[in-house]
Design a protein around this nucleic acid. Structure first.
Length: 294
DNA sequence: GGTGCGTTTACTGTGATCCA
DNA sequence: TGGATCACAGTAAACGCACC
């Protein structure tokens, strides 16, 4: 299928994204549920280009070859998810919510997808987002929603703990781990968008997804939300997949509701509390070598 | 001091490879 | 065969510097 046929069939990913984020901002949308269909249509559209091996218009550098432009465009979906989440939370709270924020932790700086207040030192809410999973194309098999998750979860655990250690530095007293991490700022959350593979032998399980996320909440994070989707029966779009009833992992809107509520409690007058900055830091993070690739 | 532009940095999802 | 690990390449924001 060529570019014109794809655009006629599924539209343009760039246009779909622009329309989605514009609608969130201009209409003051506060629930992901209200833009869920647009999000799934955007991902279906983007995946159609990937399957066809066609680079979408207006994404990636024009000077690059088509496969490289397509790969570049495909990497945008994670950023789109983070930007959409930040915009929804901003509408819920009327607070400026930053997407892609530099935040100083105990041992190094971190880039946090969504943070409030918008400052380098001592934000009170930090949200990490991820989008995983991709359809098969050419001779490349579909990538599962859980691929590389064993590495990514280490990053989530480390970042959450490093941020919570910032205020008291090496003077932090922990005692009971669960009690400490539930009260130490910032609140840390994880929002996961996952495309589930379908098929008799490679099917991704939403139960496994919930189990992994639940383990993070039980051990390191203050909360997590999952949006899972898969190809529908008529194979002409994506549909959401419900989480198992036993899971204490939430849908995205529950997490956004909770975070917005916490922000209102911390800033009842609309003004965020002053940052608590340690007088002395154990590690001069700014003088250390930066991280290698994550 | 302000502006514009090139460079650097951190992050992303994916592909390749290794190994049990 | 599938999980774990590492490297890759593009993006956007941050940064630095020359120029006005």
């Amino acid at each position: 299928m060529d570019l014109q046929s794809l655009e006629a069939h599924v539209g343009s990913p760039k246009q779909r994204w622009d329309t989605l984020i514009d609608r969130i901002q201009s209409e003051g949308v506060v629930r992901f549920r209200d833009v869920e269909n647009e999000w799934l249509a955007l991902l279906w559209c983007l995946d159609a280009y990937r399957v066809a091996g066609v680079a979408p218009r207006s994404l990636g550098k024009a000077s690059l070859s088509e496969p490289r432009r397509l790969a570049a465009a495909y990497r945008m979906k994670g950023n789109w998810f983070a930007i959409a989440v930040a915009a929804l939370l901003q509408n819920r709270t009327s607070q400026p919510i930053g997407a892609k924020n530099r935040v100083i932790g105990f041992s190094q700086t971190h880039q946090i997808d969504v943070a409030w207040p918008r400052r380098e030192n001592d934000p009170l809410v930090c949200i990490e987002t991820k989008v995983t999973g991709a359809p098969a194309y050419s001779d490349t098999p579909a990538r599962g929603a859980m691929s590389d998750f064993s590495n990514r979860r280490k990053e989530l655990k480390f970042a959450a703990t490093d941020l919570k250690l910032y205020r008291r530095q090496d003077g932090t007293t922990i005692d009971h781990w669960g009690a400490w991490r539930s009260t130490a700022p910032p609140k840390t959350y994880f929002l996961w968008g996952a495309r589930l593979r379908t098929g008799p032998r490679t099917e991704d399980s939403v139960v496994a997804l919930a189990r992994e996320t639940q383990a993070l909440v039980d051990s390191y994070l203050d909360g997590a939300g999952v949006l899972a989707w898969r190809t529908n029966e008529t194979r002409d779009g994506y549909e959401t997949v419900a989480l198992p009833g036993w899971a204490r992992v939430s849908v995205l809107d529950d997490v956004l509701h909770r975070v917005a509520s916490e922000i209102r409690q911390m800033a009842p007058s609309g003004v965020a509390p002053e940052a608590v900055v340690p007088a002395n830091t154990l590690v001069p993070a700014e003088l250390l070598l930066p991280d290698e690739d994550a």
